[in-house]
Design a protein around this nucleic acid. Sequence first.
RNA 1: GGGCCUGUAGCUCAGUGGUAGAGCAAUCGGCUUUUAACCGAUUGGCCGUGGGUUCGAUCCCCACCGGGCCCA
Length: 500
Amino acid sequence: MVAPRLEQRKKLLELGNPYPARVNRSHTVAAARECLIEDTENITDTKEINPTVSIVGRIISVRRAGGMIFADLRDYSGEIQVQFRTDALVDFDQLNLVAPGDFLQVRGNVFRTRRGEITVGCEEWSVITKAVRPFPSTKYPIVDEDIKSRQRYLDLMANEESRNIAITRSQILHEIRQFMHHRGFIEVETSMFPRVAGGAMARPFTTHSNALNRELLLRISLELPLKKLLVGDLPPVFEIGKVFRNENVDRDHSPEFTMLESYEPYTDYVGVADMVEALHSHLVDTVLEGSEILLPEILHPETRDVIKEARTINLAPPFEKIKYRDLMHKYADKFDDRNHKTLAELIARALALGVRVDKTMSRGKILDRIFSEKVEPLLIQPTFVMDYPVESTPLAKRVPNDPTLVERFEFFVDGREIANAYSELNDPVDQRSRMTNEEDSASTDQEIPPTDEDFLIAIDHGMPPAGGIGIGIDRLVMLYTAASNLREIILFPTLREPEK
RNA sequence: GGGCCUGUAGCUCAGUGGUAGAGCAAUCGGCUUUUAACCGAUUGGCCGUGGGUUCGAUCCCCACCGGGCCCA
């Protein structure tokens, strides 16, 4: 804390309460700006032209001009200038106890200064919150990524852009919920502590319950409990919630992230793709102005080389649909998974392509690695990649005329996976076989979840044909806000322990 | 996990093998229409930590600890 500010706080306490529980506000700052009458032709009463308002907000800058002080006051609706005059205020000298960062309540009339700035001429003021640490400079804003992420409030205080990202994220979540409810889905919440961390390939976090006296796992996906709800004959369901994956942290990966998953009975993955298009159409209409997003080029900080060129993404559907095997053939040196029957052959081929893999990896994971490195970065415009090899997932139905493929699509934009969808497998016998086979063939791979017997029993009772999808909300927000790092759109990212 | 960069005042950044610099912020003073206000003064630093080379290290070398970026 800063000694002079603590001294100011002390003096303010002697004069009154600088932390009142209630304030008197007649207008938000934005509303105060609007109530100035601009067309004064037929009005003679200055009270009507210059209405009196009572506003509250944080002082973000101060300019002294002799017996007069101009300050900018900001609330969540906007900013407005306030004028304090020594000849109008008996307590003018007490303004020495006020500094940028403090919150004030100001009553006065709205007018325009000679320079044309809409201003509240203060008649009465009081401190409603005294800050004892400094307000960050807006002239030389904090650029230290560490401070920006760990003390997000300073970043938000100083940078309007950061505030806008937080607001846009909320809008996106709101519009997604509107869209899903409108489509007949109900929102549910399932447990963060599954018996088995399944539904995806990733290592889970563990924690401990004292009451139950056992280790708990944190979920890595929402898929299995939501499918159990379809067995329970609920209407179409969706859940928006955090999932946790104990893996690397980089610009596209966070150990905790927000997923939307939805499961709709009586449709398939094509129906789900239609829904993805409709969702983007809705988001484009409600969140964006126009359907195009300009993503800025990314430069290497030292060499100034262009790592990624500036690109314009068009989010207006329809989006292209391309088959998985066609893409692999085209971009991974005519790769075809059917030509590599054994794991050893597949590993050899991956290494020949320059993709790092090892013997502990399952077949599905190696295929995923090759695709990730050779194809994904090239999928800039919104693209559905259709029909994956059956090894890629145990949870999707096989393509009717080709049992080596499953009805799965992933949705890519700007080289990033945004969504993953299946025609959900509901044959209990095939499901059991696919889950247990996967476990057997690669028992050394720590990312393969153990068999979830509860889930298999549920499917035995009959799950209706359904289309399901998981959408990475953080990556979606990155896209719609043109952010280049997950940390920009996650308010409190998980970081290393700070130095003491 | 590997490579490159980086750590200097509250913030943003300069700088040099020989007593440490600017702008902003802060403090004091001036100014009654300012708005990145302005003018004058003052304050502020274990130059990330530990070791080494040297008469002397913030600077050169090594290790460690933060942070960033790229690759895996």
